[in-house]
Structure formats: C-alpha cells, structure tokens
C-alpha cells in the first residue's frame, strides 16, 4: 500500500439561470442590440449599469434611456497574469468606465497591450462582439477611443 498523498480534482458547479425582470432585462436587451441603456433616477442622474431601485431614495426605476458608447476611465487595475476563469486570456485592465450620459461608472475590461497604455481619465469606447445574446459579455471589452463606432 502506498503512503503517497492522494489528490483528485474536485469541481463545484452551479448552472444558475436567473430571471432578469424588466430593468436588468431591458439593459441586457440593449446590449443584444448594441445599444447602451442607463436608468434615470428621480434626481435626473443616470445609472449605468442600472439597478432596479434608486440606491438613494429606494424608488423603483421606471425609465431606461440610451446613453453613449464611449466614456472615461475613472479608475483601473492592471491584470498582468489573467487567471483561467477571468474573462480575458491576454493581460488587460479592469476599469471603471463612466460612459457619456451616465453619472456612475461600470466595471469592464480595457483591452490594451500593457499597463503603460492605461491612465485615469483616458477615453475609451465599447468594442462589441459580433454574436450577441443579451449578456454583459456582449461587450468584448473597451478600447482606447478612436472616434469610430465600435
């Protein structure tokens, strides 16, 4: 009998399907159609991504409006050695991006070659996937703004 330590792979997987409701569902419908939507709050400011309730007043959100597809990096962190389950295989930047027309930033990846290409305040734009399903990954990532639509 061997005294070697036994090892075995152990995978825990939860294949959740969530219902979205009309606010998150509306936002995802927009993604599928390559359109960015924000939630209008009672004070007139716009949240993107939307929440179902205004975090300040707890009022339900009742209006989604189209916002821009480019914006400003408000903060970022370089992922130089992406782990297997991160959304990108190449090094990338996690970034908070405040899209034009929105008052809150959203988290996504900025696809640049190295950290020297990143800076707070830089302008970036959405790069859409060709095949979109109504999922946050319909946005392939953000790239430095060129002026051309993604």
């Amino acid at each position: 009998m061997s005294d070697d330590v036994l090892r075995a792979p152990l995978v825990l997987e939860y294949p959740f399907t969530r219902t979205t409701g009309p606010v998150i569902g509306g936002f995802l419908t927009g993604l599928r159609e390559a359109m960015m939507l924000g939630a209008k709050r009672s004070d007139g400011t716009v949240m993107c991504p939307p929440l179902e309730y205004d975090p300040l007043t707890a009022e339900p959100i009742t209006e989604l409006i189209e916002i821009g597809q480019a914006g400003e990096v408000t903060t970022w962190s370089w992922a130089g050695d992406p782990r297997p389950q991160q959304p990108f295989e190449q090094p990338f930047a996690w970034a908070m991006v405040k899209l034009d027309g929105a008052d809150t930033p959203m988290l996504h990846g900025v696809l640049v070659d190295d950290a020297d290409a990143m800076s707070t305040g830089m302008r970036v734009q959405i790069q859409w996937r060709e095949e979109r399903t109504g999922h946050i990954a319909d946005i392939a990532g953000f790239v430095p703004e060129t002026g051309d639509a993604g």
């Binding site: 825990l12 997987e13 419908t29 109504g134």
Partner: peptide, 13 residues
C-alpha cells in the same frame, strides 16, 4: 426582451 440570463458558477479544486 431578454427575460433570463445564465450565470454559471464554477470552482475547481
């Protein structure tokens, strides 16, 4: 409209 989304969670040990 989009009504649902799959959000699998997977942990490999």
């Amino acid at each position: 409209p989009v009504r649902s989304v799959t959000t699998p969670l997977r942990m490999e040990y």
